[in-house]
Amino acid sequence: MTNSTTPLPRLYPGMNLGETDPDTHEAAEELVFGFWVFLMSDAVLFALLFAVYETMVNSTAGGPGAAQLFHLKPTLIETLVLLASSFTFGMASLIMKFKQHVVLLQIALIGTLILGVSFLGFEISDFAKLTRQGAVPQLSGFLSSFYVLVSTHFLHVLSGCIWILVMLIQLSVFGLDETVKTRLLRLGIFWHFLDIVWIFIFTFVYLLGLL
């Protein structure tokens, strides 16, 4: 199967392991493809939440709107933190592929986890600030849709963090076996996917809201 002259076929989205671990590469095909199908379904879910948000931007019912509530600075920080975590996850994937070194990999994952958790922390403090101003989701259709869109992303990142945690433990218990690797491949595309969703949140919710 592995032939050094012909390039290995890419079998699935995200990091492919063909060059360094052909067996896992093949085992991963169905698993990662299946996870990708799930992400497409999830993408539709997010798209619809965005659409609902767009239809409700002006439904402030006399309450505050986007321009009064949002601030550029925390959004920028959150954006950079999440982008950085995408990059560290990329490093983790490279370590998994080329170095196969458990401890290094764990360090990269812990870095990602810290960034992920700080992202969540910034969001919580954002929400807390809004709540203190009285801008709670019960106030208007606009705020309901804002909170639900952003916290759906929040919940996804939270599950991503729990998943990273579980994988850290599994790395210690099992080392880099085939199952752990295919799971990290899926976790990787999940993490990058969440960053993509965030691009649209900061663009459509925050930037265009403040424009």
Binding site: V52, M56, S59, A61, P137, Q138, G141, F142, S144, S145
Partner: peptide, 14 residues
């Protein structure tokens, strides 16, 4: 459950 206003007839629900 949480008293939001997506589909209510007031407070900007649709």
């Amino acid at each position: 459950y949480l008293g939001m206003h997506f589909f209510t007839s007031g407070a900007g629900g649709n």
